Computed example of a mutant assay.
Amino acid sequence: MSNIVDQYRITKEPYYRAVGDEVELYEAAYSVRMPMMLKGPTGCGKTRFVEYMAYKLNKPLITVACNEDMTASDLVGRFLLSAQGTEWQDGPLAIAARHGAICYLDEVVEARQDTTVVIHPLTDNRRVLPLEKKGELVNAHPDFQIVISYNPGYQSLMKDLKQSTKQRFGGLDFTYPEHAIETEIVAHESGVDADTAGKLVSIAERSRNLKGHGLDEGLSTRMLVYAGSLIAKGVAPLAACRVALVRPITDDPDMRDALDAAVTTFF
């Protein structure tokens, strides 16, 4: 294995609490190198899941946080000026395809559609990446796999994935875990006791009921871990929830009052 992707290996097992058969399904998908699409709300564990699977399969993982300014060259590669003249530098997708890593495009719908079409030849039976500027066709390494994630509830119609892209992928749905499992995750990740973790999850569940009624998104598991970490460091629960849960999610005074009230109910 080339050294270039060794830096992308995950050396310590990430904590991931399975909630269904997603681990087995992903392993089966990887065994046939099926491109995978992870769908679900922000902060519910999609990225952690990919990290865990890359660790379990012992494959390097190259993650790209997609954004609307990202060009195809950012993914594929470009010529750069150097002292010797110009030299080609592979982008993250080309590195993964060439050297057999898993390439994870996080929040892929944030990228422009002309950028996402560059993944098409890698996600069908061709498994090739044309480097048009360089006049090279990269045949994907046998270990290469592409994984994308997105948040279906958050996209405007302008920003959904095209059918021609979606139909190249297998799909796994992610959502916030049920109460007991989420409590276990928050306690494990933040270091608070199960009782405190359970209260944080209850606050989050109330906020998720407000989605579409003043909140774009409910509180994520990730935010609960932040709040728990502050409480574990000795910050008073009310203050920790204000800083880690209520203030980041909304600027609307009425929504803040409603969330503050939920916090005081439990703490």
Score class of each variant (00 low, 15 high):
Asn3Ile: 05
Asp6Trp: 03
Glu13Arg: 14
Tyr16Val: 00
Ala18Ile: 08
Gly20Asp: 15
Asp21Trp: 02
Asp21Lys: 10
Leu25His: 04
Gly45Gln: 00
Gly45Ile: 00
Thr47Ser: 06
Lys56Phe: 01
Asn58Pro: 03
Asn58Gln: 11
Asn58Trp: 02
Pro60Tyr: 00
Ile62Asn: 00
Glu68Ile: 03
Asp69Ser: 06
Thr71Pro: 06
Ala72Ser: 11
Ala72Asp: 05
Ser73His: 10
Ala83Tyr: 08
Ala83Lys: 12
Thr86Pro: 07
Glu87Met: 11
Trp88Cys: 08
Ile95Leu: 12
Arg98Cys: 02
His99Lys: 06
Glu107Lys: 07
Val108Asp: 02
Val108Leu: 09
Ala111Lys: 01
Gln113Met: 13
Ile119Asn: 02
Asp124Cys: 06
Leu129Gly: 01
Lys133Thr: 08
Glu136Phe: 12
Glu136Gly: 08
Val138Thr: 08
Ala140Val: 04
Gln145Tyr: 00
Ser149Ala: 08
Ser149Met: 00
Asp160Glu: 15
Leu161Ile: 12
Thr165Phe: 04
Gln167Thr: 15
His179Ala: 11
Ala180Trp: 03
Glu182Pro: 10
Thr183Gln: 04
Ile185Glu: 01
Glu189Asp: 13
Ser190His: 05
Ser190Cys: 07
Ala194Phe: 08
Thr196Pro: 04
Lys199Phe: 03
Lys199Leu: 08
Leu200Glu: 04
Ser202Thr: 14
Glu205Ser: 07
Asn209Cys: 10
Met223Pro: 08
Leu224Gln: 05
Tyr226Lys: 09
Gly228Val: 09
Leu238Thr: 14
Ala244Val: 01
Arg247Val: 12
Asp251Glu: 14
Pro253Val: 12
Leu259Cys: 04
Asp260Tyr: 14
Asp260Trp: 11
Asp260Leu: 13
Val263Phe: 09
Phe266Met: 13
